[in-house]
Design a protein around this nucleic acid. Structure first.
Length: 790
DNA sequence: CGGACGCCGAAAT
DNA sequence: TCGGCGTCCG
C-alpha cells in the first residue's frame, strides 16, 4: 500500500508533533489502520469464532485520545472496491483459510502462541466489523463517513474542502492525493505523531530525491512511476529513479519514451495509458460529499473525461444509496443493508460525573473537577422485565458488563474508587429524575463491587475466578490510560454484550438520565462535562443537531476556487496560497467566510440485525461473554427475540457458496450492480421490518466474500457500472455496456506478473494433506460465518 | 556506487 | 502488512 519509500524519503521534512499542537482542529482518520491494529489484539478470538469487539476498544481508545487533546476526530472508512485496484483476492482468501486451519491445528496441540501467529494472518477487517466501530462512534457522537471507494481519497477530499485540518494515516498515498497535513506513526503512549506538511515539500532535496520546484503533477507522476496501488512500476524503476528521470525529462511522456528508447527495461504495453488512468484515480476518484450528500469527484474532471475513466475511478451511486453507504447503513460492497454481526454490542456513553473532591483525582488536571467515568449496563431492551426476572444482584453476572473508558487521574486506591463510585451514584440519583427502577439499581450492593472490580486497579486480578479475561482487556485500557500522562476521559463507553440481557434491563433505568433514546444511543460526551450534576440531565447534543461548526479557519481562506491546478511547491509561501485551487464550494462557507463542517450523519437507520455470532457456533460457546455468566439461565443467554433475519441456510448455502470464492465474489459484484440497475430504492428502501423479512435477501447476497472482505478486488470481476464481463468468470452479461472492456483488459498486465506462487511453509507439514484440505474447508465456512452470520 | 528487491522481524497485549 | 536491512545487479 502506498508509495514504497516515500515516507522515508520525506523524513527530512517530517517533524514529530505532540497531539496537543492540534487542539481545536479536526483531523481525519483512516479507520482501517486502527481497526487492523485492533484486530491484532483479539485475533485468536476472532479466528475461533468468539464474539468480540475488542478491536473497537482499541480504535475507540485512540478516538478518546484525540478528543482528550481537544482534537475532533473524523473517522473515515474504506468503502467498495475500486475497479482500478486489482488484486488477487482469491489467492489471499485461500491463504487466510490456510492460516486459520493451521492456527486451529496448533491450538489443538495447545500451542496457543504459535496458533496466534497464524490467526493474525487470517483475520481481515470487514465492513461488518467496521460497523461495530461505527456503532461506538455514533454512541459517542464522533464524526465519521464511509467512503464510497477509498478512504484515502475521501480523506483528501475532506481536507480539501476544509472539513478536516489534517489526516492521520499510515499511508503515503495521502500525499499523492494532495493532502496538506499528514500525520503518521501516531503513538498513543507519547501522544505524538510524525507530521508532514506539504508546504515543506520544496525543502526536500537532501539525500536522494528532490521536490524542489515541482508541481503536484510532477510529484504525483514520480509516485505513480515508482509504483503505486493502481499501477505497478516499470521493473527496475523505484522512487529514486523515477525522481531522477522526471528531473531530466520533465514529463511522463518523455520519461517513458526515454526508457523505451534505451530499451533496457521491459516497458509494459500501453504503459502510458495505464499511467493516465492511475493518475485519474488520484485526481478524480469518487468520494462522498457529506454536505451535499452525494458522490462527487475528488476534483472535477476536465475535457478528456469519458465513460471508461468515469467507471475506473469509481462509478456513481444514487444519492440515496451513497448517503446510506456513507453513514454505514449499507454494506459498501454489496450495497445491501448492513448486517449487524454483533447486535448485542451496544456501546453507550454516559456523561462524566464529578468526583468527590480530592478523591481519585490527579494533581495535574487543569483545576477543574475530575471527570470520572460512570459505568452501567445499558441495553437496547426497551423495557425491563418484571423485576423478579431481572438478575441484578449477582456480582458475578454483572461484572462482565463490559465497559470502556477510564477514570481520570492517577491510579487510585480501590477503596477510594469505591467511595467515589458510591458518591457518584448518590449524586446522580439526586440529580436526575429517578427512573422507575432506579432505587433498585443503586441500592444494589453488588453494584459497588462491580465498580470496584473494574475500576479499582489494585484489585484487579486476572486470575480471579470471577473476573473474566474479557475484562482484563478493559482493565488494561484503564491502566494504560492512567499511565498515559494527563489523560482524562470525559466519557465512557458502555457496552452490553451477548448474554447480558438481564443486566441490560437492569440498567435500562438509567436511560432517562442520559437521554439515550435511540437504539443508536447518541450521546455527546462533552468534554469537561464534569462540573456539575445538572449536566447530567441536560439535553444531549445530538451529533447531527448542532449547527455546523463555525470555527474560524483563517488559514484556509487561501483557497481559491478554480479547477484543479498544479500547485508549485517551490516557493513555500506562495505555495501556501496556491497549493490547492479547488472548485468553489459555496456550501461549505458561511456568510462570514467560515468553513461549515457537516456533522456526522444521524438518520433513522435500517440495519439488519443478524443473530450474534455467539449463536452461530454451537460448539464454541466459550466467548468472553458467556464465560462469566454461570448463574445466568440459558434462556437469558439467548438474544432478545431479534428481528427476523434474512432467510439463510447456514450450512448448505454457505458451503456451496464457499466452494467457489470466485463465484461468490462475482455474485457480490453482480448483486451490487443489480441493486443499482434495478432500482436500489425499490428493493431496499423499505421499512426496516420489511427489509428484514424480505425473503429475497439471502445469505449469499449479504455475504461480501467468504471473508466479507474489505477489498475484494478481483481483476476479473465485473464492475457494477460497466458490467464488464471478464473472461475468467462464467459469462454473465448483466448489463448493456461492455464498452470499457477493451480498455480495462489492457490493464490486466498489472497482476499476472505480480502473482507469486504460494509459498509452502514448513508449518504446513503439520497437517496431512487431506486433513488440511478439510480443515481449510471448515475454516472457510467458519470465516464466512464470522464475517457475516446467517 | 546507488538503487532495487528479497528476506525477516515486529506489530498489540 | 510494513519497515529495516542485506545483497545483488546495473
Amino acid at each position: 500500500m502506498g508509495i514504497t519509500g516515500l515516507l522515508p524519503a520525506l523524513k527530512s521534512i517530517s517533524t514529530q508533533r505532540h497531539l496537543s499542537e492540534f487542539a481545536d482542529q479536526t483531523l481525519g482518520v483512516d479507520a482501517y489502520v486502527w481497526l487492523h491494529r485492533g484486530v491484532f489484539t483479539c485475533a485468536t478470538e476472532l479466528a475461533t469464532g468468539k464474539a468480540t469487539t475488542k478491536y473497537v476498544d482499541y480504535a475507540m481508545h485512540r478516538v478518546r485520545l484525540l478528543r482528550h487533546h481537544k482534537i475532533e476526530p473524523y473517522i473515515v472508512f474504506d468503502g467498495g472496491p475500486l475497479p482500478a485496484k486489482k488484486g488477487t483476492e482469491v489467492d489471499r482468501q485461500a491463504r487466510r483459510a490456510e492460516h486459520l486451519a493451521l492456527g486451529n491445528a496448533l491450538a489443538a496441540q495447545g500451542k496457543t502462541s504459535q496458533a496466534r501467529e497464524h490467526y493474525v494472518k487470517c483475520i481481515d477487517v470487514t465492513p461488518q466489523m467496521a460497523f461495530q466501530f461505527i456503532k461506538a462512534l455514533r454512541a459517542e457522537g464522533v464524526k465519521y463517513v464511509v467512503a464510497p471507494y477509498e478512504a484515502d481519497a475521501q480523506l483528501a477530499y475532506l481536507e480539501r474542502t476544509g472539513a478536516v485540518d489534517g489526516v492521520i494515516t499510515e499511508d503515503s498515498d495521502l500525499l499523492v492525493f494532495g493532502c496538506r497535513v499528514t500525520l503518521y506513526k501516531l503513538d498513543a503512549v507519547s501522544s505524538t505523531a510524525m507530521c508532514i506538511d506539504r508546504a515543506d515539500f520544496a525543502r526536500v532535496g537532501a539525500d536522494g530525491i528532490s521536490l524542489h520546484g515541482w508541481s503536484d503533477t510532477q510529484f504525483r507522476a514520480m509516485a505513480i512511476l515508482s509504483g503505486c496501488d493502481y499501477l505497478p512500476s516499470i521493473p527496475g524503476i523505484g522512487l529514486k529513479t523515477a525522481c531522477t528521470l522526471l528531473r531530466k525529462w520533465k514529463t511522463v511522456e518523455q520519461v517513458v519514451r526515454a526508457i523505451a528508447m534505451e530499451g533496457k527495461k521491459s516497458m509494459p504495453r500501453d504503459y502510458l495509458r495505464s499511467f493516465r488512468l492511475a493518475e485519474k484515480c488520484f485526481l478524480h476518484q469518487r468520494v462522498y460529499d457529506p454536505y451535499r450528500q452525494k458522490l462527487v469527484h475528488l476534483s472535477e474532471p476536465d475535457a478528456d473525461w469519458d465513460e471508461d475513466a468515469d467507471a475506473y475511478v469509481g462509478g456513481d451511486l444514487e444519492p440515496e444509496v451513497a448517503k446510506k453507504l456513507a453513514e454505514g447503513d449499507v454494506d459498501p460492497v454489496t450495497l445491501l443493508p448492513m448486517t449487524d454481526i454483533c447486535p448485542r454490542y451496544v456501546p453507550r456513553v454516559l456523561k462524566a460525573i464529578p468526583l468527590v473532591n480530592g478523591i481519585g483525582g490527579s494533581t495535574r488536571g487543569k483545576g477543574k473537577g475530575k471527570a470520572v467515568s460512570l459505568l452501567s449496563f445499558f441495553g437496547p431492551a426497551p423495557k425491563p422485565k418484571s423485576p423478579s426476572s431481572v438478575k441484578i444482584a449477582s456480582p458475578k453476572a454483572a461484572k462482565p458488563g463490559m465497559i470502556a473508558g477510564k477514570a481520570s487521574g492517577k491510579r487510585s486506591l480501590a477503596d477510594e474508587m469505591d467511595r467515589d463510585n458510591a458518591a457518584k451514584r448518590k449524586k446522580r440519583q439526586e440529580g436526575a429524575t429517578p427512573p422507575t427502577t432506579q432505587s433498585r439499581f443503586f441500592a444494589s450492593p453488588s453494584r459497588v463491587e462491580i465498580d470496584v472490580a473494574i475500576a479499582g486497579p489494585s484489585h484487579f486480578d486476572e486470575t480471579k475466578e470471577n473476573v473474566p479475561p474479557a475484562d482484563a482487556n478493559e482493565y488494561n485500557d484503564l491502566v494504560e490510560t492512567d499511565l498515559d500522562a494527563d489523560l482524562e476521559w470525559d466519557s465512557l463507553s458502555l457496552v452490553v454484550m451477548p448474554g447480558q440481557e438481564d443486566e441490560m434491563q437492569m440498567v435500562d433505568i438509567a436511560e432517562p438520565d442520559v437521554g439515550v433514546e435511540q437504539e443508536d444511543g447518541y450521546i455527546s460526551p462533552t468534554p469537561s462535562r464534569s462540573k456539575d450534576a445538572e449536566d447530567f440531565s441536560s439535553p444531549l447534543r445530538h451529533s447531527v443537531t448542532p449547527p455546523p461548526r463555525q470555527r474560524p479557519k483563517s488559514n484556509r481562506t487561501a483557497y481559491s476556487p478554480g479547477p484543479e491546478v498544479d500547485a508549485v511547491s517551490s516557493p513555500p509561501d506562495a505555495a501556501r496560497v496556491q497549493l490547492f485551487r479547488l472548485p468553489a464550494l459555496p456550501l461549505y462557507r458561511s456568510n462570514s467566510g467560515e468553513v461549515l463542517v457537516p456533522t456526522s450523519p444521524d438518520p433513522p437507520r435500517t440495519v439488519l440485525v443478524g443473530p450474534d455470532l455467539f449463536d452461530a457456533f454451537d460448539d464454541e460457546r466459550t466467548s468472553d461473554i458467556d464465560c462469566f455468566e454461570e448463574d445466568v439461565t440459558v434462556e437469558s443467554a439467548t438474544p432478545t427475540p431479534s428481528p427476523p433475519t434474512p432467510d439463510v441456510g447456514l450450512s448448505g448455502d454457505a458451503t456451496l457458496a464457499l466452494a467457489d470464492p470466485e463465484e461468490l465474489e462475482a455474485k457480490a459484484y453482480e448483486t451490487r450492480a443489480a441493486a443499482v440497475a434495478t432500482g436500489w430504492r425499490e428493493r431496499w428502501m423499505l421499512t426496516s421490518d420489511k427489509a428484514r423479512t424480505t425473503p429475497t435477501l439471502r445469505r449469499r447476497e449479504t455475504t461480501v466474500t467468504p471473508a466479507g472482505h474489505h477489498f475484494p478486488i478481483n481483476s476479473h470481476l465485473p464492475h457494477p457500472y460497466t458490467h464488464h464481463t471478464p473472461s475468467s468468470v462464467p459469462s454473465k452479461n448483466v448489463g448493456a455496456k461492455t464498452t470499457s472492456l477493451q480498455s480495462r483488459r489492457s490493464l490486466t498486465f498489472l497482476d499476472p506478473g505480480r502473482s507469486k506462487p504460494v509459498k509452502r511453509r514448513t508449518s504446513d507439514l503439520l497437517l496431512a494433506v487431506e486433513d488440511r484440505d478439510e480443515a481449510v474447508a471448515n475454516a472457510q465456512i467458519r470465516l464466512a460465518q464470522f464475517r457475516c452470520p446467517p
